Amino acid sequence: MAAVNVALAGRSYEVLVGSGLLGRVHCEAYSFLEPYGQRSIPVVADANAKRLLGEHLQASFRSAGLSIDWYEVPSGEASKSWAELEKLTDWLLDRGITRSDHVFALGGGVVGDLVGFACSILKRGCGFVQLPTTLLAQVDSSVGGKTAINASAGKNLIGAFHQPALVLADTACLASLPIREMRAGLAEVFKYGLLGDAEFFARVDADSNAILSHDNTVLESVITHCVGMKARIVAEDERETKDARALLNLGHTFGHALEAETGFSDTLLHGEAVALGMVLAARFSARRGLIAQSDAERVADALARAGLPTEIAALGLDCDGAALADHMRNDKKAEATTVPFILLRAIGEAYVARDVELADVGTFLDEQLRAH
């Protein structure tokens, strides 16, 4: 087991990574369970995670004489909505959750985001513990305190910064994931190498099959590396007021536009959208003369070898580049006619570009929609 500390003044917490952690929640999270006394522990779970892993978690709590009060969230991005947020907060209030209590979130990024945001506003803030069960959540969304729901105008536009009290990333949970979900998580693993560690990018490319085959030694190592990188960035720039944390959005501006165009549906998983977004960011960087075209295609080739989508033309979208670029106007960081983009000066060296015109992006996306 590995431990990574997210060092924040007065709100530091640990991220534990290893196999079997779900069976030891009653030990690792004891300080957050003890105050409940005879009350049942509120656990908010993705429907699939509860079906596959719920009994395992229940056994852990039962061994400590504790019981669970379950709240089940429908699987899928549609659950990050006002309607689900209202139902969840009402449920928590009905159970008398206090500001000193901690709610447990079992599932992927959707549940983590929904629970984190609910806890940020419930009685002006209560605690929560992340039990991420997907690769994407373990390497990225469960750490750092970004919580949000989606709006009709775009993804993650309504939210708050609210750090968890603890993150327990059980690598054994990943064995229950469909291969498509594993690949979607692997896109975020690639992201960490692409934005700031070229050697790690090459290592992930070489180890992709081992990661997708659930090699626990490799999984623990790469997840810990990603979490360590994110912890350092979050400690430096928790609320994304500087450029440091913005780098974590590599691939996301393009990716969120694709998610919006596909209706935030299972047509395109978040990690798949990020993979496409990273390829587009690399090709757009090459188009601007920042990197060689061969470097951009090296990014695409690595993701393709891992089974991730790399060509937006293959999506069969009924829109043009201008329509995709228009989705970006609702980006949280948009300014007038420009949106900050994370581009590449090299593989392993990302930066924030603030001189990108959306009209130029639209033209580029038209080229990509017709390519290949």
Rank of each mutant, 00 (worst) to 15 (best):
E240I: 10
L276Q: 11
M278D: 03
A235I: 06
E240D: 10
Q293D: 03
L269Y: 07
H270D: 10
T267H: 05
H270Y: 07
D243E: 15
M229L: 13
L248C: 09
F284Y: 15
E259D: 02
E240S: 06
L247G: 03
L258G: 00
D243A: 13
E236G: 15
H270C: 06
A273C: 05
F284L: 14
F254D: 02
G289S: 09
I291C: 04
L268I: 08
A292L: 12
T253A: 10
A296N: 06
E259S: 11
L290W: 05
A286N: 02
L248K: 00
R283I: 05
T262D: 04
M278R: 14
D243V: 03
T224W: 11
E261Q: 15
T224I: 10
G251A: 01
E259K: 13
T267W: 05
H225K: 12
L268E: 01
A282Y: 05
E238D: 08
T267K: 08
A260N: 08
E238Q: 09
T253R: 14
G263A: 11
D243C: 00
G271V: 07
V274G: 05
R288C: 04
R232A: 15
E236M: 09
F254L: 01
I233F: 10
I291S: 09
R232G: 14
F264H: 15
N249T: 08
L280I: 12
A246D: 00
L280A: 09
H270S: 08
L268F: 00
K230M: 07
T241H: 14
A257M: 01
I233T: 07
E240H: 11
E272K: 15
E236Y: 00
L269H: 13
M229K: 13
G251H: 00
L248N: 09
R245Q: 10
F254V: 01
D295I: 05
V234A: 02
L290N: 07
H256C: 01
A292T: 10
D295Y: 13
A292N: 10
A244R: 07
D266G: 15
A235C: 03
S285R: 00
E240P: 04
E240G: 04
K242E: 07
A246I: 09
H225T: 15
R245F: 04
A244E: 14
D237F: 08
A246Q: 14
A246T: 13
S265G: 13
R288I: 02
